[in-house]
Design a binder for these strands. Structure first.
Lengths: 237, 237
DNA sequence: TAAAATAATTGGTCCAAACCAAATCTGGCT
DNA sequence: AGCCAGATTTGGTTTGGACCAATTATTTTA
């Protein structure tokens, strides 16, 4: 008989160990805990540290490699290829032809519903991952590039929290377009420290609403973040 | 020291076992030794027959699944999805892992808003194109495959009618997933002539609402079509 | 000191076993 | 017949261990 209570967390629950490792490592990479070009610990070491079998670590690394976050060399090690300042990241073609207004429209459709689904479906572990990203965000006060990157990770985690692969795929397109828009905005120095502080406050509220499983509150915060982005992206000068 | 003699073959040589299994199985599938829709032997059986571990068989099956040759259902078996009669348009990977319920959720989010934007933005020429597809649909009374294809075209035109490339890109993913779901539904002969007639009536009303620029009416018809699809895709037998 | 041999480390591949959850099959009951 | 409970089968996940091949570090040797 299945129990109503959520799975007893903290240690990876059966059937989700690989995902746990993927989450853990990709977060460390995106947050530059493992810096670009850096060698990450050996598979055997990671296995021991994370308390899983080496096979499991390998599966996770396979995933990271196909996602282009790392590259592996036999006998040498696994190296971070993910580059935050990736000028060279190939944006999907749709991102190029999507204007800021069209982006906002699409986000306005997806995000409020997305966060509702996420609030309902996110596991404690996923919420924990969210909090990790949030706390990293709170340490940033100036660097717009780093902040936007973490913001994106935050959004991605919410999308994945819905458990809907189709929604995740769609939202990835949205995030691509968003990244492109923000690149221009950062170039114009619109993302000032003052603005960053505003965002931090908003995301903090959003996270608390999610953690408290308050659907409407979370949806409202999501809309506020969207409006804030709108101010940033659509302002003309 | 490497030996001059060629590797003692017949049995897979070390370091190429997975490839050997992939080769063997994909050949059997493409040559229809395992026919389309047929269930192939269980993983444990294959492992024994081919003289390898079940793990190795699984790795090979993973590969075949991502290549779209087979589909696996826990507790049921692995089935050949490869269809030599070229209909086999490669579905995007997300379509494969999207369940009918998840598809419905995503459509419920996108379509009502999408049709609103379309009603506002569609040019007379685009509406004309819609009417052409609609009249083609009305000539079909039996053939589910042809009808579904036209239906998809109808939806695609609406998406393009929004003038939002990002939305179009997202909705293409949705249509991919929808096509995959409908494939199964058609196989189970759920799309009967009676149902087709119901759809035709609905699409007719939807078109009239769009042509009349009646936003709310169009959105309502769109929701009705979605509910009808829901009946078709989520019905159990 | 420089080159060569050797050891240690690292990712790559494969195997064997155990357990889970979903789906299916089976036997007995009404 | 029809239904239901339990045994069985099937894919899904994870563990742990063994060996290989590429690389790097270390030691030995000329």
């Amino acid at each position: 008989m299945p129990s109503f209570a959520p799975p007893p967390d903290n240690a990876p629950l059966p059937g989700a160990t690989v995902k746990y490792v993927i989450e853990t490592l990709s977060t460390r990479i995106v947050t530059q805990e493992y810096a670009t070009e850096e060698r990450l610990p050996s598979e055997r070491q990671l296995a021991q540290d994370l308390g899983v079998a080496r096979n499991t670590v390998r599966e996770a690394l396979d995933h990271l490699e196909t996602r282009g976050l790392i590259r592996r060399r036999a006998g040498s090690g696994s190296f971070v290829t993910y580059d935050p300042d990736g000028q060279g990241e190939a944006l999907s073609p749709v991102a190029a032809e999507t204007g800021p207004l069209q982006l906002q429209v699409m986000r306005g459709i997806l995000e409020p519903e997305m966060v509702r689904l996420a609030v309902i479906n996110m596991s404690p572990k996923q919420i924990e991952a969210l909090s990790v990203v949030l706390s990293k965000m709170e340490t940033i006060h100036v660097d717009p590039t780093a902040f936007v990157r973490l913001e994106e990770e935050f959004h991605r985690l919410i999308a994945e929290g819905t458990g809907n692969p189709l929604l995740v795929a769609c939202y990835n397109l949205v995030l691509d377009a968003r990244r492109q828009s923000f690149r221009a905005a950062m170039y114009r120095r619109h993302l000032t420290p003052a603005r960053i502080a505003i965002y931090q406050h908003g995301y903090n509220g959003l996270f608390n609403a999610i953690a408290a499983r308050d659907i409407e509150e979370a949806s409202e915060f999501m809309k506020l973040a969207l409006i804030e982005d709108q101010r940033l992206l659509l302002q003309e000068e």
